[in-house]
């Protein structure tokens, strides 16, 4: 489906954890076709906010034929504007945009890693991979800095997903970084493996260094960069990617991405 721009009304907005909210709106056209990894650009009605550029947000869940959820955390101007929206307010939604995670990782195991507010596309991917039912085992590692930020995922995750929670300060789940949790899963299973991740650059870069390309046949990372147009026009959102040999190319996060081969992205 070609992306469409729509003014839609907010159905619901609710707090889930510290600085973390769910935004629900109705958009039947996209709801029918959204794939895990895709995103939309959200913008205010002209004059209703001092937010200027639209902002990218991954789709978190499609909860009925027409209702879509975004999960977001407040950082600055745009996300604070969003947190103050009320049901009935109008927002601009442009989507679906970007590529998707590979949904045919082959038989074997998959580890999904969500760091902080990188979790939304990982949840949609877990739902989809589990529904497809081709995997032997599906682990989801979710890391936050501290317990107050942790989103309670049990109600939205399929029962077959083995969930591992880590916090940096140990206030919930296992103490430490997601990489340690991933390493212990890697020790348990010897099968070919797919690893999917979305989170801070530092986390995804660290994962790329601990994963062995011999064992991990598919390593997909959902990347982030400042965006303006969201559909490949402004060239503003590029990610440095080593494609074949050592030459680095700048690929547009919104068009060739946001999902890239994590072994090819130049992390530092």
């Amino acid at each position: 489906m070609k992306p469409v721009f729509k003014w839609v009304r907010v159905l619901q907005i609710s707090g889930l954890a510290e600085r973390t909210y769910i935004l629900r709106f109705e958009e039947p056209e996209s709801a029918a076709v959204i794939q895990p990894g895709q995103f939309c650009m959200i913008s205010p009605l002209p004059g209703s906010s001092n937010v200027f550029l639209p902002r990218p947000f991954s789709y978190y869940r499609v909860i009925s034929r027409s209702v879509i959820e975004i999960l977001f955390r407040t950082f600055g101007r745009a996300t604070r504007w969003m947190a103050n929206l009320a049901p009935g307010d109008e927002i601009g939604v442009f989507g679906p945009l970007g590529n998707t995670f590979n949904l045919a990782p082959g038989p074997g195991n998959a580890i999904l890693v969500g760091g902080g507010i990188g979790i939304p596309p990982i949840v949609m991917l877990a739902e989809r991979l589990s529904a497809l039912g081709r995997l032997k085992r599906l682990d989801l590692v979710y890391g936050e800095s501290t317990a107050s930020r942790v989103i309670y995922l049990a109600p939205v995750l399929p029962a077959s997903v083995r969930c591992h929670l880590t916090t940096e300060d140990g206030s919930a789940g296992q103490r430490g970084l997601v990489t340690a949790a991933v390493e212990s899963i890697l020790k348990e299973c010897r099968d070919p493996l797919a690893v999917y991740t979305c989170g801070p650059k530092s986390m995804m870069g660290a994962l790329s260094r601990i994963l062995d390309p011999e064992q991990v046949t598919l390593f997909e990372t959902s990347c982030e960069e400042n965006m303006a147009c969201g559909m490949g026009i402004c060239q503003g959102c590029v990610i440095p990617v080593r494609t074949g040999g050592d030459s680095v190319r700048y690929l547009r996060c919104c068009a060739e991405g946001p999902v890239f081969n994590g072994f090819e992205v130049q992390w530092a």
Binding site: L53, N226, Q235, C237, V238
Partner: peptide
Amino acid sequence: REGNPPPRIVETDSGMLNSIGLA
């Protein structure tokens, strides 16, 4: 032209900055 390294754009008050590097 491959253009400049990221970040290339950022929002400002009522506008934006870009340094695409004529990619």
